[in-house]
Simulated scan of single mutants.
Amino acid sequence: MVRKQPSIADAALIAAAVERGATPTPTQLERWRAAGLLPRNEQHGAGQGRGSVSTVPPEAVDLVVWLSAHARPGRRPGDLALEAFGAGLPIPEPTVRAAWLAASTDFHLDALVEPAEGADRSDWIADIAQELAAKHSGKSVLLPQRIRDVDARIATAGISFALPELAPFDRGTYDTEPYTSRDLLTTAVSAVLGGTSELAQGDLAAISRALVPPGSAVPVASMLEYPDGGPGLADINDGHGLTLLPAGDARDDLDRVVTEASPAQLRAAWQAVDDMHHWAVSLCDAVEAELDGLAADEPLPEYPGLQQWFFGITFGLNRLLLRQALLEPVPSSRARASTAVMLLFLATGINRLRAMVPDAQFELLPVLLPPFLHQLAELVAADLPASLRPSESA
């Protein structure tokens, strides 16, 4: 088939890209526009009844140069959109959001066939969780080797994981079954598909204990195992419909996080994945250096690395983030976006807590949270999503 010659605007766009070392073709421009990766030329009246002329949007040249270097046969447009967005390029926003939404849940949950009408959703969730856990459990470990090595060195140094000031607040677990990476995946899938209806407090307690060294004092896990009449996870709310955790399918909440986030928040979440990995490696380096000093009988005045390490053991969240960062140091575009959505969900959850418990000691967050998560939470707080604004959630 004979293709028509490129328009004057496209010819100028190609020429501008060539000047910068790229070699795009008219066919590629058509393909990128069809995929939503490249904005269409802008139409303007030529004046005095002479019809219209097309002009290239100012950002198009940068996009064409980038796409010429990165677009290859077989590469998904969504992955290209995410990478270009992460690189600071002005990919059309509808395409970017669609790519984020497609990556918002792990394990390809968006491709699942929903249960038939009238079927028991809990049974369906249990079957799906078991199926996906069996499929993926061999690809992961409960704790990366570096975390286990550091824990072993701490124990060898004679440092107890049951800190004296915390031990009285942990009654000890009532669950003696060994916990595996498959158990973790089953719980994660069940939580995504069913929210608090499928997530018992004991499940979170089991995760908290499974990710820390044996004998650790974990007050948070103890509180979940022995709530003593306190509110259940499903009951924590602000009285106006705002809940701490989703009561049903969490995919709806994850999609809402992406839909309501500003472009600046999405970009910050994308960068936070890199920051999380740098934080994890730096923390391991710091703890190992401090343990080297103890082994050489050269004590230091302070041990900030070990302090942060024990924060993770005590409160759980930092330990989970450390695990995620070390398990996947170089994630794919889709996996990176999925992790970024998880971080954005956590940052949003922190601000849900601000709305529910406004008099809590949130001034401690900079000490308790890793810097990348605290900064993301502050960015969300500065421009709250619609579902967290008092006037709209009340």
Rank of each mutant, 00 (worst) to 15 (best):
R323Y: 04
T196H: 04
V218E: 05
P90N: 09
M1Y: 12
A191Q: 13
H240Q: 10
E378Q: 15
L242M: 05
C284Y: 02
L388W: 00
A81V: 11
P331C: 11
T156W: 03
V141L: 06
I154E: 00
R182E: 15
V367P: 00
G74P: 04
P214S: 01
I8T: 15
R121C: 01
L300G: 04
G172N: 02
L294I: 15
I313C: 06
D252P: 00
V287I: 12
A268E: 11
G241I: 06
G195L: 09
D203S: 05
D120R: 13
I236Y: 04
R323P: 01
L132G: 02
A12V: 06
S104W: 01
P24Q: 10
L379A: 15
A325E: 01
T23G: 12
A9G: 11
L245Q: 10
T27L: 14
P92C: 10
R182A: 14
A381Y: 01
E117P: 02
S68E: 03
L344A: 09
H136C: 04
L388N: 02
E225N: 05
D359K: 13
P299V: 11
E131L: 13
P73D: 09
H240Y: 07
P115R: 05
A167N: 02
A157M: 07
I8H: 14
P370C: 13
V192Y: 06
R389W: 05
G86A: 12
H277F: 14
P178A: 04
A382M: 08
A15Y: 09
G36H: 10
W309D: 00
A221N: 03
V367Y: 13
T243A: 06
A250T: 12
V65H: 05
D235N: 12
V65N: 08
R72P: 02
A15H: 12
P390T: 14
S391L: 15
V18P: 02
Q307S: 11
W100K: 13
R121G: 01
R33H: 05
P329V: 13
I154T: 01
H136G: 02
E260P: 05
I125K: 04
L80Q: 08
E225M: 07
R389S: 08
T259F: 01
A133P: 12
A81K: 09
F161T: 01
A264R: 12
G202E: 07
R40P: 06
L38M: 06
L291D: 11
A355T: 05
R121W: 01
A296P: 02
S68M: 05
R323A: 07
R251G: 04
T180P: 08
V65E: 11
Q375N: 15
R153S: 07
R31K: 13
V220W: 02
S282W: 02
G86R: 07
A133S: 14
Q43K: 14
G74L: 03
N41Y: 09
L353W: 05
D120N: 15
A157I: 02
L346K: 12
A46S: 15
A377L: 09
P92Q: 06
A221G: 05
L37C: 09
G248A: 14
T176L: 10
L388V: 07
P385C: 11
F107S: 03
A69G: 04
E363N: 11
